[in-house]
C-alpha cells in the first residue's frame, strides 16, 4: 500500500463512464486484478471520505509502463467531480488495496461475468488469465447500451462473448445471470469470476453452489477508509472450520470473496425497515459511492 500524488495522464469518456489514467509507477508495479484504489476528494466539508475504484489496467512494461487506469461511474457529487477532472491535474491516491482475484492452477476454462462498471476489473483479470494460457469467455452486461463497458475490448479478450442489456439496446435483452447457465455449458467453464451488482452476485453464488463450480466474486459494500481502520465495509463470511461466521472487512480480506462462504441472506436481509415506505413514483437515485 502506497500513498502517492499522481498526475492524470489522460481522461476518456466511455459511454456512461469516465476512464482516468494516472502516472503512478509505485502502485502500478504492485496492482493485481480485483484490487482497488482510494482517491481523495477535493478539500471541502461535503467530501470527507475517499472514493474507491477497481484497478482497470496497470501497465508494468512498454510505452505505458508505470501507468494505472481506473473507471469512474458518476453517481454523486464526488464521482462527478472526478469524472470532470482533466489531464495534468493531480490526485492523492492510496493503493493498491485489498486482495485481488486468484488464478486457477490446473483448471483452464474461465467464465467472466461482468455487469456495469464491474467489467473494469474483469478485463484486467482476463489479460492476466490469457497470459497464463487459460481460456477466457465472457458475459458482459448493463442496463443499456452506454452502460455496457467497452464491449469491443471484451470481444478482443475473450474466445466467445455474450453481451446483455436490460433494455435490449445492445446484444440480448435480459440480465447477465440469464446467460450464465447457457454459457457455462457452451464453454465448458470450470471456474467462474464475477463482478456485478449484489443481487446478481447472490444468484451467481447459488448457481455455482448448485453446479459445484468454483467461483470468485468481487463485492461492493459501503467503505470508509479502504485500508482496514474503520470496520464499516464488513461482509459476513463463514469460517473454514464451519464453527460460525465472522464479519470480515471487504477492504482487507476482500473485495474478492469465495461466494460459497459468504452468508448472502444474513448480509442482504439486514436492510433496515423501520421507516415508512417511500411513495410510489419516487425516482430511485443512487447515492453511494457518490
Amino acid at each position: 500500500m502506497r500513498r502517492v500524488r499522481a498526475e492524470i495522464l489522460s481522461t476518456r469518456r466511455l459511454g456512461a463512464y469516465h476512464s482516468i489514467t494516472l502516472v503512478a509507477p509505485e502502485i502500478a508495479e504492485r496492482a493485481r486484478p480485483g484490487q482497488f484504489l482510494a482517491i481523495q476528494m477535493p478539500e471541502g466539508r461535503e467530501f470527507l471520505l475517499r472514493r474507491h475504484f477497481a484497478v482497470h489496467q496497470a501497465s508494468r512494461r512498454g510505452g505505458w509502463a508505470g501507468t494505472l487506469e481506473f473507471v469512474v461511474d458518476p453517481s454523486g457529487p464526488g464521482t462527478e467531480w472526478l469524472g470532470n477532472s482533466r489531464a495534468h491535474e493531480f490526485l492523492d491516491v492510496i493503493g493498491p488495496l485489498g486482495k485481488g482475484f486468484a488464478y486457477p492452477k490446473k483448471l483452464t476454462n474461465c467464465l467472466l461475468v461482468a455487469e456495469g462498471h464491474g467489467a473494469a476489473s474483469l478485463y484486467f483479470l482476463a489479460q492476466e488469465l490469457i497470459a497464463r494460457h487459460k481460456r477466457v469467455d465472457m458475459i458482459v452486461g448493463g442496463e443499456s447500451l452506454e452502460r455496457v463497458f467497452k464491449p469491443i475490448e471484451g470481444k478482443r479478450l475473450s474466445q466467445t462473448i455474450q453481451i446483455v442489456t436490460a433494455d435490449g439496446s445492445l446484444g440480448e435483452r435480459g440480465s447477465v445471470m440469464d446467460s450464465v447457465p447457457e454459457m457455462v455449458e457452451k464453454c465448458g467453464a470450470q471456474v467462474l469470476y464475477a463482478a456485478a451488482s449484489t443481487t446478481t452476485l447472490e444468484r451467481v453464488a447459488s448457481f455455482c453452489r448448485e453446479r459445484q463450480i468454483p467461483a470468485q466474486v468481487s463485492i461492493e459494500e459501503r467503505m470508509g477508509c479502504g485500508y482496514g481502520l474503520c470496520f464499516t465495509c464488513v461482509v459476513p463470511v463463514a469460517r473454514k472450520d464451519g464453527s460460525g461466521y465472522d464479519n470480515l472487512r471487504s477492504c482487507i480480506d476482500g473485495p474478492v470473496f469465495n461466494p460459497a462462504r459468504v452468508l448472502w441472506d444474513r448480509w442482504l436481509s439486514d436492510a433496515p425497515t423501520m421507516l415508512p415506505t417511500p411513495p410510489e413514483g419516487l425516482p430511485v437515485v443512487r447515492t453511494w459511492p457518490g
Binding site: 461535503e46 459494500e221 459501503r222 464499516t232 465495509c233 464488513v234 464479519n247 439486514d270
Partner: peptide
C-alpha cells in the same frame, strides 16, 4: 462482538 449490520457508514454535511 460481531458488530452492527451494514451499511455502517454514510457521509453527511460536515461529518460522517
Amino acid at each position: 462482538r460481531r458488530g452492527d449490520p451494514t451499511p455502517r457508514i454514510a457521509e453527511s454535511p460536515a461529518g460522517i
